[in-house]
């Protein structure tokens, strides 16, 4: 009744749903937050975890194979590269003097 395929597919779908929730909240935060710095808060964190969860779902769907090794490497690369890119953009904005938003101002 409960075959292994069914369990694997269910776990994959669950990981997809959680990942998509994080990706959507990241996108909504990117749209709604008032200035550049807070927008990077939304994308730098939510997108990384959402994408990694989707890729982990694909790894579980695929089982033990060379393809899963590649996908695992891809997720590790994202875990390292996304914060580094966020940090680089943050630093560029701060050095060139983009003014951070304070509570009570109009959104930029």
């Amino acid at each position: 009744m409960f075959s292994l395929d069914l369990i694997v597919n269910g776990v994959t779908v669950a990981l997809f749903v959680i990942g998509l929730f994080f990706m959507f909240s990241g996108a909504i935060g990117f749209l709604r937050f008032p200035d550049f710095y807070t927008r990077l808060h939304a994308t730098g964190k939510c997108d990384t975890l959402g994408e990694i969860l989707i890729i982990v779902g694909l790894i579980i769907y695929d089982g033990l194979s060379p393809l899963s090794a590649k996908l695992l490497f891809l997720s590790f690369f994202m875990l390292l590269a996304n914060p580094a890119g966020t940090h680089a953009m943050m630093r560029a904005a701060y050095v060139t003097g983009v003014r951070p938003w304070k509570r009570g101002e109009a959104r930029q």
């Binding site: 994308t43 694909l58 891809l74 953009m89």
Partner: peptide, 23 residues
């Protein structure tokens, strides 16, 4: 508004595209 928001948007779209290509 401004170049920084556009560059951040391009970067975010790029990382989302990676997952989309795999799918």
């Amino acid at each position: 508004p401004g170049a920084f928001n556009r560059v951040a948007a391009a970067s975010v779209i790029g990382t989302k595209t990676v997952v989309l290509v795999v799918i």
